[in-house]
Nucleic acid binder design. Sequence first.
DNA 1: CCGTATCCTCCAGGATACTG
DNA 2: CAGTATCCTGGAGGATACGG
Lengths: 124, 124
Amino acid sequence: MKDPANPVCRTISALLQRIGDKWSLLVVQTLGDGSRRFNQLRREIPSISQRMLTLTLRNLERDGLVNRTVTPSIPPRVDYELTELGHSLQKPICGLVTWAMDHSDAIHAAQASYDAELDRREAA
Amino acid sequence: MKDPANPVCRTISALLQRIGDKWSLLVVQTLGDGSRRFNQLRREIPSISQRMLTLTLRNLERDGLVNRTVTPSIPPRVDYELTELGHSLQKPICGLVTWAMDHSDAIHAAQASYDAELDRREAA
DNA sequence: CCGTATCCTCCAGGATACTG
DNA sequence: CAGTATCCTGGAGGATACGG
């Protein structure tokens, strides 16, 4: 069941790496409240590079989480939106986000006390 | 709210990178059904290196998700177990895992069709 | 048994420049 | 506007050896 070769485990692991990667979750969350054009996304996530936005969107599209719609006008127009599958992912994601918010104080406290303990030891 | 500098966002992002990293989730899941010794974990996750197991456990401990108990005997004995906080994380994690299992077919189908479409284009 | 210390490799991801 | 192409660097993470 925990065997990394197990196909269901690989799926889960792949999903976690996707939503755990540097940008995917941010993009999904942004698309959560509606479709966006490419440069719209860039502006709403200013720290992402053009390259990484493209790559992130391609991966999400490949996984069936995002739909890409090209309107061949001049200038060209490309819209991205969550698929049904993409929207369905929002609920479990939301569970994690809620957990993180509920326990962020506890986490920071744990980190602070861990770091303080380290300092104390190395002072000795 | 999506500003990466926002402290609550940094907490969420940090959490996601932790559970999305290569080993943390696997370790947490393994500790899910009880305390383990160091080399016990190594055997149950054969592909992890000693270094990465140590680092992963240290991070989880720092975040307050795992407890480390040293028994100074010969040979030394070190036990790891989930904290209360660690256990509470299992529920939202489980939501994600369930989602992944429920939709793994859809994901694989999306990937296959995406890849097939790519092949078709480059054949032209 | 349970680590730490070192070295080394590989690739995620940023910066920049160019195209349709 | 919406990308692709190329180059480059930092750091994640494996292998190995040593220490308490």
